[in-house]
Design a protein around this nucleic acid. Structure first.
Lengths: 202, 202
DNA sequence: ATGACTTATGGCACACTATGACAGAAAAGT
DNA sequence: ACTTTTCTGTCATAGTGTGCCATAAGTCAT
């Protein structure tokens, strides 16, 4: 990795950290892009070259998670029931979280607090999920040998899986640490698996 | 109902219709508030008194549906299992759709086409759903005698119910009429009910 | 009807987000 | 060192959304 890329990555994280701190200090709405840019000493124009929008800051982690899920889904055996494969994908995100660095943990916990204090943002995050669900539904439909456009069950399978993930993410108490959060997420996943009829997703 | 209120309602619908037509003609992004206001001969400033934002136009129906669901939930017997009550609420939205006027049907079908051509908007709609889910989860937790903050199952129950509703709404073919859409939605609801283990939501 | 009261509207100014165009600086490859 | 590519800042501009104030329209007395 060249100097250029390293520098870019550093800037990107600096923006992210500065933004999260500002959001926690003075709220999301009342923080302007100009302030964020000022805090890391770049021009506002440059901010938009790193993040396509102010919202995008908050969706950063979501995008990372989606990539991971898509990857996992493709690597699971084709014969595996789709919901099972999806649950593996969700667990992959979970273990990625567990395996990340101290810095990333801090960033993640900050993000969580920001989301908690600005509920409209979790809406944004969920909105991003709509696209994710469509892409996952394509993969599920392929597994089931159906057409994603017309097969409602494929969509339902994905929707249920993402529901479990979302509930697991939002539900844990706000003040807990990383192990508590991942623990609760794991519980929710099991809860979802237990709630469904065996073979419902074939 | 006085002249004032009737006039307001008329303006509101005029704005909505003009906006949907413009969105279909030239796309959501490339339609400005100024154009919409111009089409119904009001000032842009007034537009924002009827709809808090451009997005709000699209969320109009969602808000109506949420009101209906909350109402239905409160009117169902407290002893009824929460998921069953939620499914009744979803069906209430469905029969409201079936029972509405020709004009409302046309409006609804237009909205559906707009959503289909501008996927980022269905994100917006789903985002609004995040708030809805939280409010519904409160009602479900009350039924189950638990605290919504800590009870993951309450959230999961609501999330599953809303998933069924969303899939039913989005999945039907785009060119179908109203009866086809409601029919497909009913199918999805039954599919969801069949997928879950009896008694999972107690 | 006339007047007083309330509410809706329009116009203006303004803050903020976001994007396009262009020129200069920094890094990469040769 | 030279060229090419990529990143950056400056400037200009479009569009959304809000506060404020004067005016117009609807409402309700007498």
């Amino acid at each position: 990795m060249g100097l250029r890329e390293r520098k870019k990555e550093k800037t990107r994280l600096a923006i992210l950290d500065a933004a999260l701190d500002l959001f926690l200090e003075q709220g999301y709405e009342s923080t302007t892009v100009e302030q964020i840019a000022g805090a890391v000493d770049i021009s506002p124009r440059t901010f938009f070259r790193y993040f396509t929008s102010k919202d995008h800051l908050v969706l950063w982690f979501h995008d990372h998670g989606e990539g991971l899920m898509m990857e996992t889904m493709r690597s699971r055996p084709q014969g595996e029931p789709p919901f099972t494969a999806l649950m593996h994908a969700v667990r992959a995100v979970l273990s990625d979280m567990e395996g990340s660095t101290e810095d990333e943990h801090r960033r993640f916990l900050k993000l969580r607090r920001v989301l908690d204090e600005n509920p409209q943002l979790i809406g944004q995050s969920v909105a991003r999920g709509a696209g994710t669900e469509r892409r996952l539904a394509e993969l599920v439909a392929a597994r089931r040998g159906t057409d994603a456009d017309s097969d409602q069950l494929s969509h339902l399978i994905v929707a249920f899986a993402m529901s479990a993930m979302r509930v697991g993410f939002e539900c844990p108490r706000r003040d807990g640490g990383m192990p508590e959060i991942t623990g609760r997420m794991a519980e929710t996943i099991e809860l979802a698996e237990r709630s469904l009829r065996p073979g419902w997703d074939l």
